[in-house]
Amino acid sequence: MTTSTSAPVTAPTTHAVAARTKGLRKEYGSTVAVDRVDLELPEGAVLGMLGPNGSGKTTTIRMLLGLVRPTQGEIELLGQRLPDGVEQALPHVGALVEGPGFHPFLSGRENLIRCAAFEPLLPKKQIKQAVEDALERVGLAQAAHRRYRGYSLGMKQRLGLAGALLVPRKLVVLDEPTNGLDPAGTREIRKIIAELHEQGSTVLVSSHLLSEVEATCTHVAVLHRGTVVAQGELTELLQAGGSALQVITPDVETALGALRQAKISARPLGEGLRVELAGTSAPQVIETLVKAGVGVYEATRWKTGLEELFARLTEAEEAERGMSSVDTLDGGRR
């Protein structure tokens, strides 16, 4: 909503939502961590929450789970209004927030048993089985007897995931689930997310790894500087945002001048230009350039990926503030 590109994709959805926030704002002292966050998580979707570190992803998730009290705004979680309904909603929510949290002196299994004891939906008799199943599912069955203290980062992450999956969930919230995982581990997480999706669970994944989100998500929400700059179905977003032309030319200055006259936005990039196709089309651009006497060696339709979209969304914001765009890209990569 803050940028022109996001306008078509924030249209209110009419189908059921697993979670929804409205005008969410959180202040810590004088700093505003999150502001005007209107998030919609459709039922059955896999929503990738993208954003550089410090963009408010985790704060938003924590508010969604009732861990943090919003300064302003409304939250609806699985049909319950927060904070009153939090205890009705949360049993159906599995979460891995801000890294896995376990006791170092207990084994993986003991840790899960302790978590299971506090799961309202898990009957006492089923605790043992549920713990074994969860361990199996994340591939920790072999290491379950070992102390958590000795786990690798990846194993810790898996145990965290197992904790979120102890009970069949309507909604699973995973904050940076692939942190510390090797490529094989990352693939497994993707597999688990896909399984959850197949079973009809709604999944919210936050990540700064764009490729991961692109590979697993049906929906995307991009957070930047504490607010949602774009959200919607992944395919729609890519279509809407994905039009640019890369032009290789020796005569960059002239080309820029001509395009500016034609009110087409462009900027120098490498050996040529990068031309935005918003409000214009490729033939029109080539025509403008040729008419201005600019030699075009090559014109390529930019292959838009999430990374590109993300960079553009966050960059646009930076440009408005008159700041360097490089920071954002760096921030986005970690």
Binding site: G66, V86, E87, V97, G101, F102, H103, F118, P120, G163
Partner: peptide, 14 residues
């Protein structure tokens, strides 16, 4: 400190 308090609250335990 261990992050387990969050886990308990999300379980949820009031």
């Amino acid at each position: 400190q261990h992050g387990t308090l969050r886990g308990l609250l999300v379980a949820p335990v009031s």
